[in-house]
Design a protein around this nucleic acid. Structure first.
Lengths: 347, 347
DNA sequence: GCTCCGAATGTTAACGCTAACAACAATGAT
DNA sequence: ATCATTGTTGTTAGCGTTAACATTCGGAGC
């Protein structure tokens, strides 16, 4: 029953103002060395149960909180990952962010974000540099943008960066949803309904997702020997979809339209309603993303669902692999799913 | 012309593997002491132009990056703020987050996020504690939730926490949009169109915003001597709005409905369309938030716009004030704006 | 020619923590 | 009884940075 004296020497107690208690303070109260306290906290090395209890009590009493800066300094690890996010309310990126944050938190990592208002080669590079200055251990770039991919081509080999949904050519691991496959599914679904061809309202040209969806649509039409109409280009917004719809409404043999995302599909529906074109009776419409509202559009929208939470989780997985020295050219594909609703329903 | 020798003693060059260069390494290359390098980097103290140039060259050459952990350890400041965000794709919270991140970045702060899947007393407290362990200098809680507010009541006085859109009773600075006023505007707009009363589809009871909007609606009706119909409760989702719409469609003298947010309004529109009820001819509908899609609903939705970017900016401002010892009971209100569209248009 | 001053630089000591090794007791084997 | 072994605790030395003080040096003032 080694009843040690409750305090050894002159203990540096939280006296001068508001200084946070340190390991040494706890050690003083518990009557042990600071090392023993460290061992209790980290579970490294053996500690006698009574000692442990005494230390835990002291920690509780002082409200001790480990100093992460000191820990990071000595271990060289910060336990923080950076995410470069496009500053937008687009459903996909936001969901991906939460997926990543969840997976990271479970694994004991914190997430620091650096947002980018307009993606561009230098802004992405700046954001990454900004995060490196925060001493993150790795960076995830959510920027499904052509220029983002280009920015990543210069990614240094000695620092782990992964990209989600972009930068196919960059020497960093990439995880993405198979946009082509999704577009193929939507297009084939429309063709199977007997339409001779399918129009397409594409997203902005500098988005990889937009390109891939367009490519998937085009390939499918060509494979089926269908005529490939002129692409109409939008910017993902409902407004641009609306404008596309206004010009499409003038088209004579308009049968089916595949929109690059749900927002633009909404704009289409709006424009068609105004023009007295009934969906699905006169024209069938499909979208992409399956935002939660899509089921309540007028009419409910057929669309392609992407599992963003899964994307986030796998992205985190790819990053940890990369941090452990994994391949710079790893790739992962998430397969989307077609959700059929009334907008492509029976007439 | 003090041409010092290019290297003094045995400089600890980046030799053993991948160790990052330190101040001392830079000092060795530049032929100065590490303190001079520190002064060049931080702009503290005088340095001769030639010396500065030499140091900058050495920094460039080695690709030196200051070690933020070491800096944080000695200064006691991490330059990081924490944000507790509700894990949702709701338009408002996501926009607020970006507003905060922008303002913070401009001021040289990094943002660490900790998301919370379901708000609750302990989960919020856990998230805050989690962030404190990351040594953030202050925390912003975006959780317009009743329980969130309650969790903040226990917020320690020695650590700066601010809340956005919640926790009216908590001893922390709060910034919020004037929900009551927004609801009043929408309700009065509908009453002014000649309706005897206005129905309300409210958000979940444990959301403060839902309560405030409901209160604003109720007050307005009472002030105008209108009958106050039974509130229908949703959960912000389009699905719940749709269900509310189905039951409202059976109501006999249904004239006008004020939905607690735009998503639920969308559900209403859908249900009414299915029931053969025309908006705005048979029923007028208003929403809340002005999500970007609202202008393209069928019909375009009258709604109350909140400036979330402004909210984010002011939240950051309030936090920095608080960190400088500002009042724990500061409050800030952002005034919303009514946007009139076809859903409450002429019949 | 000497002192004094300020500009420029250097030296030393923390900051709070973990890694590495040292020390000591109790335990069991010999 | 002796010695290695194991369990438990302590001591010391950094990690890379900034704060505080010390030093050097050239020129201004007398």
């Amino acid at each position: 029953m080694a009843e040690r004296p409750r305090s050894g020497g002159p203990v540096k107690v939280t006296a001068a103002g508001t200084r946070q208690p340190s390991l040494t303070d706890v050690a003083g109260v518990a009557g042990v060395s600071h090392m023993t306290v460290s061992r209790v906290i980290n579970g490294t090395g053996p500690v006698r149960p009574e000692t442990r209890a005494r230390v835990l009590a002291a920690i509780e009493e002082l409200g001790y909180r480990p100093n992460s800066a000191a820990r990071a300094l000595v271990t060289g690890r910060t336990g923080t990952l950076g995410v470069v996010a496009l500053e937008s309310n687009l459903y996909g990126p936001a969901s991906t962010l939460y997926g990543i944050e969840n997976a990271a938190r479970e694994a004991g990592y914190a997430i620091t974000i650096s947002s980018v208002s307009r993606p561009g080669r230098s802004s992405i590079a700046d954001a990454v540099e900004n995060l490196r200055r925060q001493a993150v251990e790795g960076v995830i770039v959510i920027a499904p943008h052509v220029t983002a991919g280009r920015a990543l081509e210069a990614a240094p080999a000695d620092f782990p960066v992964v990209a989600v949904g972009g930068g196919e050519a960059a020497p960093v691991p990439v995880i993405s949803v198979d946009q082509r496959d999704g577009a193929r599914r939507a297009t084939e679904h429309l063709l199977a309904l007997g339409h001779r061809t399918v129009w397409h309202v594409a997203g902005p040209e500098d988005w990889l997702e937009a390109r891939d969806r367009e490519a998937g649509w085009r390939e499918t039409l060509e494979r089926h020997g269908a005529n490939v109409p002129q692409v109409i280009r939008g910017d993902w917004s409902s407004r641009s979809g609306y404008e596309a719809g206004r010009s499409l409404a003038k088209e004579r043999d308009l049968d089916a339209v595949f929109a690059g995302n749900d927002q633009m599909a909404l704009g289409l529906l709006r424009a068609f309603a105004e023009a007295g074109i009934s969906v699905p009776r006169d024209v069938r419409v499909a979208g992409f993303d399956d935002v939660p509202e899509a089921a309540y559009f007028t009419p409910p929208l057929t669309t392609v669902r992407q599992d963003f939470i899964e994307v986030g989780r796998r992205t985190f997985g790819l990053l940890t692999q990369r941090m452990d020295g994994g391949d710079r050219h790893a790739r992962a594909l998430v397969v989307p799913e077609l959700i059929v609703r009334e907008s492509t329903g029976p007439r």
